[in-house]
């Protein structure tokens, strides 16, 4: 967005999961199963920006988020945070780095240890990184953070099961923010919540962002949420980035047929029924055996021979707007004029 160096740079990140070969597999010569969850994704995030990452389940968006934080060790590729190569850091330096990069999880029930009080959960980052001099100071800082996310300091001695889903998500946010990080991976933080609670949490996250000067990678399958929040949006399909650019461009004039079909599939309250809907045939192919050529060709209405043979290169289609499709120059669109 700005001319300054990006806060986070992801360069050709690959994450593979190996199924492991058993003795029997080795004897029969069966190859090891390899799931390529993320296949060479590059993107950059400027300080103070919200980059939305969108895609359907199994596209690798959560894996990408976790690999950036090295919660899952990337197979290859580089993650640079504020000039430091995170992927090369040894354990002690990585631990120090974790204070600056945090994550908010999807499931407000699974992400909090049921046997810890709220005070212990939120206070843990402070204690681990020695950010407070005394237990009393930990408590003060935790209380301040808990109030910042809209709960009461009187809640500190309660256990997670005594809270509702929305309140628990607030606790998870407090845990992520208490060490004053600069960068947060928000991994579907509102997907498990009811509509009215979802809006509360979105509002809280945007308020905290401007208040604390945060940068978000916001992962979601919900285009409406991404469209509302993000400055730029990245679209993933089967481990690959198919389109990336400013949200106004990508969502208003999507260039990749997959982004177009995603846009047309979202039911919206504003303009029901006035739309020609793109019907994508079939389901997401298995990442165990991704299709050759362009990975989207099995479901793409525009697929031709070259799409079945060759993987498309990423091309620039506008200012800061890139897409990976063989037929970009033809300006095909699945969407009606009215929608564009």
């Amino acid at each position: 967005m700005t001319g300054s160096a990006p806060l986070l740079e992801v360069d050709k990140l690959v994450k593979e999961y190996r199924g492991g070969r058993r003795l029997a597999d080795r004897l029969t010569g069966r190859p090891e199963t390899v799931v390529r969850a993320v296949t060479g994704v590059s993107l950059s995030i400027a300080r103070g920006e919200i980059v939305g990452l969108i895609g359907e389940s199994g596209c690798g968006k959560s894996t990408l988020g976790r690999s950036i934080l090295r919660l899952h060790e990337p197979t290859s590729g580089r993650v640079t945070f504020d000039g430091t190569d995170v992927t090369a850091l040894a354990a002690p330096a990585m631990k120090a780095m974790r204070r600056r990069m945090q994550i908010i999880f999807q499931d407000p029930y699974a992400s909090l240890n049921p046997r810890r009080t709220v005070g212990e959960i939120v206070g843990l980052p402070l204690r681990l990184h020695g950010l407070a001099r005394s237990p009393a100071e930990v408590r003060d800082l935790v209380a301040a953070m808990i109030e910042k996310v809209g709960l009461k300091s009187a809640h500190l001695d309660r256990y997670p099961h005594q809270f509702s889903g929305g309140q628990r998500q607030r606790i998870g946010i407090a845990r992520a923010l208490v060490s004053h990080p600069e960068f947060i991976v928000c991994d579907e933080p509102v997907s498990a919540l009811d509509v009215s609670i979802q809006a509360q949490i979105i509002q809280l996250l945007t308020d905290l962002k401007s208040e604390m000067g945060l940068t978000y990678l916001f992962i979601s399958h919900d285009i409406s949420v991404i469209g509302y929040l993000s400055d730029r949006v990245a679209v993933m399909y089967l481990g690959e980035l198919v389109e990336f650019g400013p949200v106004e461009d990508v969502l208003a004039r999507p260039r990749h047929p997959y982004t177009q079909s995603l846009m047309s599939a979202v039911p919206e309250v504003d303009r029901p029924g006035h739309r020609h809907r793109v019907r994508l045939e079939g389901d997401l192919p298995s990442p165990l055996a991704p299709p050759p050529g362009c990975r989207f060709h099995t479901r793409c209405p525009f697929a031709t021979d070259i799409c079945r043979r060759e993987a498309p290169r990423t091309e620039t289609v506008g200012p800061g707007h890139t897409a990976a499709c063989h037929r970009l120059s033809e300006n095909l669109s699945l969407l009606d004029e009215e929608q564009a």
């Binding site: 009215s196 809006a199 509360q200 509302y228 309250v269």
Partner: peptide, 24 residues
């Protein structure tokens, strides 16, 4: 009204959404 106002949309960018306060 609150439910409808709670739905985030591209069209509402830059505006504050007005969530329904509190919980069920």
């Amino acid at each position: 009204k609150g439910l409808l106002a709670s739905i985030p949309r591209l069209a509402l960018r830059g505006q504050r959404i007005r969530p329904i306060e509190g919980q069920v």
